[in-house]
Structures are given as C-alpha cells and as structure tokens.
Amino acid sequence: MQNQNEKDPIIENLWHALGALKEIDAGQVNKTQLLGQPLCYGKDANDVAFVWPASERHKTHTPVNFEALNRCLPVQVRYGYVWTCLGTPSEEIFDIPEYVEPDRRNLNAASMGVHVSAPRAIENFLDMGHFPYVHTDILGVEPHTEVKDYDVTVSADACEILATRCLFYQPMASQASAGGADVEYVYRVPHPYCSILYKSSPLDAARQDVICIFIQPLDQEHIRAHMLLSVLDVDNPDISIRAFQQTIFGQDKPILENQFPKRLPLDPRVETPIRADKSAITYRRWLRQKGITYGVIPAAA
C-alpha cells in the first residue's frame, strides 16, 4: 500500500496510462505499479481491459478469469493505452483531437522504465535547449544552439499549459525528413504527468505530427514513459518510425537518470533558470499552484 506520507490526492484522482492495449496478451496477468501500489492488468478476448490490485494469487503471464475478480479499479482505453485511477476520477482524460484523423498513423513507440521522477521527465520533454548536445545531428546541431523566444500561457481554467512559436533548426526532425529545416513546435501540458508535442510535418506544411508522452509514476522516483506517436507518414514502416523515437528517448535516458535531485524542486530559488526555460518555469509554478506534492520537492511554505 501507498505510504500515507506519500499521498497526493490530486495525483491519485487523475487517470494514468499503464500500457499499450495492443501489446497485452489476452487472458493473461500483467504486473506493474502505480504511485507505489502494485497492480495487475489485462484484457479479455474482446479487448476489454481490467485493472485490479495485485495479489499473491496472480502471477505474471498466467491465465486469469476476469469475471472472478472481486475488486477492479476504474479503467478506460484511450489513445491505444489502458488508463486507470487509484482514487475517484476528478476529470476526464484530456482530448487529443488529431488522434482520430483518418490518415494518421497511431502507434506506441515504446514504454520504457526510467529512474527519475515524473515531473523531471515532463520538464525534459519541454526543453529544446538540449537538442544540439544530446540529439546531435537529429533534433539539433551546433552552431544552431539558440532557443529563440517563444510564448507560454496557462489556459483560463488553469487546466493546461501551452507553449507556442517554438522554433528550432533540426537536421532530421523525423523519420520522414529529407534534410535540415526550421521546425515549429507547440507543447501542451494538460496533465501534471503528460505532455503533447505538435511539430511541423515534413509532408504537409499545414499540419503537424503529434508526439505524446504519458508518464506512469511507478513511485516518486521511478517511471514508465509511454510514447504515443500520431504522425503523417505514408512511406515508413511502423518499425522505423518507432526506432527513430526510441533512439531519441535512449539518448535522453542517461540525462534524465543523472538529474539531481531526482524530484523536481518547486521552490523558485532552488535552480537558476535562463530565458529558454520559460516553459519549465511555468510548469513548476503550475504544479506549485495546483498543490502537487508527488515527485516534487515542494516549495517551503
């Protein structure tokens, strides 16, 4: 059970993704963890998903009779993933309207474990400054290191952060790129542990590729990062679209795991930001105002 000291009612009442529905073998037990609590999940032959508290009786990859489970947690399937909530769901899962566009390729790039807190992972996802150094020759290259000024706003209902007009020179913005280009990014943060990135499509100047990161907090300092791709790409097979994103994430992993402290400090005096960190500053302030305590070091009162 979750340690009482670690309870964060806001986070507990939100939906969190546990895994891609397609990757679950029907009729079997899968084990994972959410907010420190061991869970089992699975799906039946009709793709109906189930999530329930782990018990000794249920062993990984053994058959399970879902009808015989006595207590299941709330469950939804959205964007190809199984989502659950440990408390009472306080809001709907955010909308990604592009997901249902008929010509989009939707796939899970990977679900990967990282030794870091969920907010650190989101903050890294929002950062463009590291592109030339960590994703050299792909998402950035020297001397094109400048993060040009961009706009960050919080929606009127305080539900979502939006960063727009983010421009960056990228040698190879996606698997479908033919060469270097100035790429425009838009970031949404509609959930403390989820972010959605829109970037110019190399194939259609009027539309954008969508890359989402849904962070499943295993505990305060360990996560599973689920990466949804919803892209316009008619040529490349799933495997190379996936491989591109896994390469990017594999490069981020050691950076994330070497962050110290692992939890995100919310006290504005703790880390010194620069202008390029505008979205990170907004994100930290937004978490602080929401009263998030899980995966962060709260500001002194």
């Binding site: 679900s111 495997i239 996936r242 491989a243």
Partner: peptide, 10 residues
C-alpha cells in the same frame, strides 16, 4: 535490417 525487439518482440 531493423528488428522490432521492443515492443514488437520480433
């Protein structure tokens, strides 16, 4: 020749 080791278990 890329093999989808994860998550595809190819």
């Amino acid at each position: 020749v890329a093999v989808d080791f994860y998550p595809g278990l190819e």
